[in-house]
């Protein structure tokens, strides 16, 4: 049941417990207990809204920064990664395979702020060998949701 509830919340986190209960044909209590457990166990980390930021008045400058690292003895990548992830402007951070080691997504108010982050916070960390910054020009899809408008296709309203 956990998996089924997670699947439904993954599609739409705003559904009420009652709505989830009726979709899965279980009691509301079972839903609320399961969700409470998932939250306590740290499996559900939070609920956020997918916003198409093109329509916001306050625009952010976004970039993906590819980072090469010389891993520290004993600590590997985790120590640097955990330091970096504490900056609030870092919205996501991944350890990846390939030429680079970390991919960091950053949202800042201005281009200058991104520059400052790189030069004074990122490049100064011992072990950071190089960075490669890619500014985001346009977002097409986020977390499985298309941000572009699709033409709606009308099918027949009744068929056998």
């Amino acid at each position: 049941m956990k998996d089924k509830i997670l699947k439904i919340l993954g599609r739409n986190a705003r559904l009420s417990n009652a709505q989830i209960a009726e979709r899965l044909d279980i009691s509301e209590q079972e839903v609320s207990e399961t969700i409470a457990n998932l939250e306590n166990d740290g499996i559900i980390k939070g609920y956020k809204t997918l916003i198409n930021e093109d329509y916001l008045s306050e625009k952010k400058v976004k970039a993906m920064i590819y980072i090469k690292i010389n891993p520290e003895k004993d600590k590997g990548f985790d120590h640097i990664a955990s330091r970096l992830s504490k900056f609030p402007e870092v919205v996501s951070l991944y350890l990846v395979s390939g030429e680079f080691d970390l991919i960091l997504e950053i949202h800042e108010k201005t281009l200058k702020d991104v520059g400052v982050f790189i030069s004074s916070k990122l490049a100064t960390i011992d072990g950071v060998v190089s960075t490669d910054t890619h500014f985001i020009l346009k977002k097409y899809k986020e977390l499985g949701t298309l941000l572009t408008k699709e033409e709606k296709y009308e099918r027949l309203k009744v068929t056998p």
Binding site: R155, K157, V158
Partner: peptide, 8 residues
């Protein structure tokens, strides 16, 4: 029309 009539 809100359709519960489509067989597809």
């Amino acid at each position: 029309v809100i359709s519960l009539g489509i067989g597809e």
